[in-house]
């Protein structure tokens, strides 16, 4: 199985250059059955990443561009009268990988329709409940720059994303390679899946079986506890965040080819799991929220 994962990573890295760590995190997020939020500027490869992952895993892929006039029905689908009877026209949410682009441009009503579907893995239209496909995975993107007419996701909604990533600009070498290389869309089109959806489900099923020792639980709990008592955040991490952190660390260990979770695994996924859930009381000059989270890690001893 690791063989498949390695090939997937290798292929993805060939498309998105210089972002090994983020790709690994995104993969761990998928394996942990979590949804992913990417907060970054336009044009750094968010869509390409989502598309590539879907393609490599052999999953079908829908992209929804969120706009301020997007309605819930535009996502979920609607019942329409056609040929003398009512039929349900499924919306773009009925796909295995859904890319919700610029989710903060839609109204809260539309946003919550997406998030509810994400949470329940099913949608209800006209009293009829329809299951979403399995595997199902949402990649939402958010433009961090405050713009007129946007609705940033509220904290309670942010908590539903297992991870929040920033891609960032590629480094010089990667960028040169990118500029010299082929058109990314060409590569994407030619991409062949390295696994089947069934294989993905099998791997996902393995994640909870990655061993978690007593010592690691102690460490993880200390981290959660510290986020609550350190006094820097409006709220500490919730138990749901703790469970997510554990699952993500297990997935990370699996991607790394190990059978037990190490403190390092927790540390690797911690910034992306915790940062969007923690809101500093005071924004300190020159410190990004990411830096805050890393400080938090440095304050808790590994037992």
């Amino acid at each position: 199985m690791p063989h498949v994962i390695d090939r997937l990573l290798e292929q993805a890295n060939a498309i998105i250059l210089g972002k090994e760590h983020q790709i690994r995190l995104a993969l761990a997020c998928i394996l942990a059955r979590g949804d992913l939020l990417i907060e970054d500027l336009p044009g750094v490869g968010k869509t390409t990443l989502a598309h590539a992952l879907a393609k490599l895993m052999g999953l079908d892929f829908h992209r929804i561009q969120f706009t301020s006039d997007l309605l819930p029905a535009d996502i979920i689908g609607a019942t329409i009268y056609e040929n003398g009877r009512f039929t349900f026209q499924p919306g773009p949410i009925f796909a295995q990988v859904v890319l919700a682009d610029e989710v903060n441009r839609a109204t809260p009503k539309t946003q919550s329709a997406l998030l509810e579907a994400m949470e329940e893995r099913q949608v209800t239209v006209d009293g009829e409940t329809r299951r979403l496909p399995d595997p199902f995975f949402v990649i939402a993107t958010q433009n961090p720059d405050t713009q007129i007419g946007t609705f940033p996701l509220p904290e309670s909604q942010l908590d539903r994303f297992l991870m929040c990533l920033e891609l960032g600009y590629p480094d010089a070498e990667a960028e040169r390679a990118l500029l010299r290389g082929e058109d990314r869309r060409e590569i994407l089109r030619e991409l062949r899946p390295v696994m089947t959806p069934e294989q993905l489900q099998q791997i996902q099923a393995q994640v909870p079986r990655i061993h978690v020792s007593e010592a690691l639980v102690t460490y993880l709990q200390a981290l959660l506890e510290h986020s609550r008592v350190c006094g820097r955040y409006r709220n500490g991490l919730s138990p749901r965040a703790g469970l997510g952190l554990l699952r993500a660390a297990q997935a990370w260990a699996l991607v790394d080819g190990r059978e037990a979770v190490l403190p390092e695994d927790v540390q690797a996924v911690f910034p992306s799991v915790a940062t969007h859930r923690l809101h500093p009381i005071t924004e300190l000059e020159g410190r990004t929220r990411n830096r805050h989270t890393r400080e938090l890690l440095e304050e808790v001893s590994v037992p």
Binding site: L262, P263, E264, Q267, L297, E298, E299, V300, S301, V302
Partner: peptide, 9 residues
């Protein structure tokens, strides 16, 4: 070893 450093790191 920094107190927050895992054994593998």
């Amino acid at each position: 070893r920094r107190h927050h450093e895992g054994p593998a790191d």
